[in-house]
């Protein structure tokens, strides 16, 4: 879902760059306020893991592939603001060093995968935790929130493409959410796999969430 240069028109990418820039500034402030000693290495590890895992494209239907996004995972582990910072770090490096996503579209990608993927996805998880309770509920809720984060990010991307005049909204919305409904299942499965691994080996790391 890394948008290349050329897909978004100037007004759209400028507006999204401004929104994401503001969100990053707020996230830096919030993270700085609440960050503890223990969270710092986890910020590095989580970002490194998400970067590596995003390289693993898995095949989905019809000659298409998808890969892990990691927004909800980052936010569940470290909180929604730090989640935005982690996604931002990954996206900036992917863009500037690996030509994955355009420079002009970087703000849009941070909006889609950081603000929606991590922040909004996290609050879906929080709301679900109030509705669905039980011993396995964090995994069920993490799965649903991760799946939804992918759908919402794909929908946001469609809206951005249509505002830019690149493709009609209905066309892109159906195609993008359709394929990402499948990719989202992968997202959900990887998120629960990581959470259950951490719960088994270092359950204390599931208590680091802040801000």
């Amino acid at each position: 879902m890394h948008i290349p240069d050329g897909f978004l028109d100037t007004k759209t990418w400028l507006a999204l760059t401004a929104v994401s820039g503001t969100a990053i500034a707020v996230s830096l402030k919030q993270t700085g306020k609440t960050l503890g000693e223990k969270q710092i290495p986890m910020m590095g590890i989580t970002a490194a893991f998400i970067f590596a895992a995003q390289m693993l494209n898995f095949p989905v239907a019809g000659g298409t592939s998808g890969h892990f996004m990691g927004g909800v995972l980052a936010a569940i582990l470290l909180g929604p603001f730090t989640g935005i910072l982690i996604m931002t770090t990954v996206l900036i490096i992917q863009c500037l060093i690996f030509q994955d996503g355009g420079v002009t579209a970087l703000g849009a990608s941070i909006f889609n995968m950081g603000i929606i993927g991590a922040f909004v996805g996290y609050y879906i998880y929080v709301i679900l935790n109030k509705i669905i309770k039980g011993s396995k509920s964090i995994f069920i809720n993490a799965f649903i929130a991760s799946w939804m984060s992918i759908i919402l990010a794909a929908a946001a991307c469609s809206v951005e493409l249509s505002i830019s005049g690149t493709v009609p909204l209905k066309t892109s919305l159906i195609a993008m959410t359709g394929v990402h409904a499948i990719i989202g299942i992968g997202e959900g499965l990887i998120t629960i796999a990581v959470l259950s691994f951490i719960k088994k080996v270092r359950p204390d790391l599931l208590e680091l969430r802040h801000g």
């Binding site: 879902m1 890394h2 948008i3 290495p41 986890m42 590095g44 590890i45 490194a48 893991f49 970067f51 590596a52 895992a53 390289m55 693993l56 494209n57 898995f58 095949p59 989905v60 019809g62 000659g63 298409t64 592939s65 998808g66 890969h67 794909a154 991307c157 892109s172 195609a175 993008m176 394929v179 990402h180 990719i183």
Partner: peptide, 26 residues
């Protein structure tokens, strides 16, 4: 943690699908 991330990037990335991703395919 870093070992796990590096292992994924180094040893698993060659197995990644080379099909276009969701947005590219659309």
């Amino acid at each position: 943690g870093l070992f796990i991330a590096v292992a994924i990037a180094v040893f698993l990335s060659p197995l990644a699908s080379s099909h276009p991703d969701g947005l590219e395919k659309v």
